[in-house]
Amino acid sequence: MNPQALARSRDFDHRGRAWYADRAVTVFVFIGGTSAILFIGGIFAFIAREGLGFVFTEFDAGEFFGSIAWRPTSALDATYGALALIVGTASITGLAMVVSIPFSLAAAVFIGEFARGRVRETLKVLVELLAAIPSVVWGFIGFSIMNSLIIDVFDVPIGLNVLNAGIILGLMAAPIMTTIAEDALKAVPDGYREAAEALGATRWQVIRKVVIPAAKNGLVAAVLLGVGRGFGETMVVLMASGHSINLPDSVFDSVRALTATIAAELGETAVGSDHFRALFTLGILLFLVTFAINLAADTIMRGIRRKGERGRP
């Protein structure tokens, strides 16, 4: 390269509009990428600051985990038993998974493996549309329509219960789980299917023995994302669960969830009071549970991946 051209190219490289744009985008992408860490750290610090004060003073682990008496505003003696809230959240999420796992995995297999052309595109759009319904609309359906329906059909005293909230939460979680599970099935290379078919496997055998095992990571991720959704959902469980402190014996019992309790009470509590800090302690608990679910998911998937790598020639 002659010196003139070199100088020109140096001029060009240095501080042009493109150079600034490039730098700006680099910085922006870096901030975007790392901001998640910042937000998570910030949120945890905030929740811990408000909640840990309670954990170290008023907190009584035996009462918190062993008693159902959540009476933060009692005129006689305020008690903070969260057992019923924990069981409530767990039971609703559990039923929601019973409803949504078979539905969404079956839907993913149908959309991913069987449906073709127009049918497939229409179904995908519809499933995504289902995911876009706001949770308050679901909650309203639970409160206004499902309540009377469950009373009429099952002849129970009240229709705001685990069944109601579980079904609605299951329907809410299903579209997301379907989309992710379908992506996981699609990510399985066609070579696997072709090889299996070449060996004479039927379509069902291909799906059951080859595609699903190969897509296991993604399917586990889909289910865990659904569980996370169930734990964190607030509006639906507030409106459809009955918001009633109770250890459920059956799906027809009303319950109360952790998230719904925080949502219903936090706005009306004097900042810094025991009640306020107890609600933040519930927040810490929710945060830890979600963290544990994600960690478990990550570990399981790593394990599967390693096993998969070893198994491969």
């Binding site: 159902i68 009692s74 009240i158 918001h243 009633s244 009303s254």
Partner: peptide
């Protein structure tokens, strides 16, 4: 206190 189990 209220009896627990009311629908709040």
């Amino acid at each position: 206190d209220f009896k627990l189990g009311s629908h709040d």
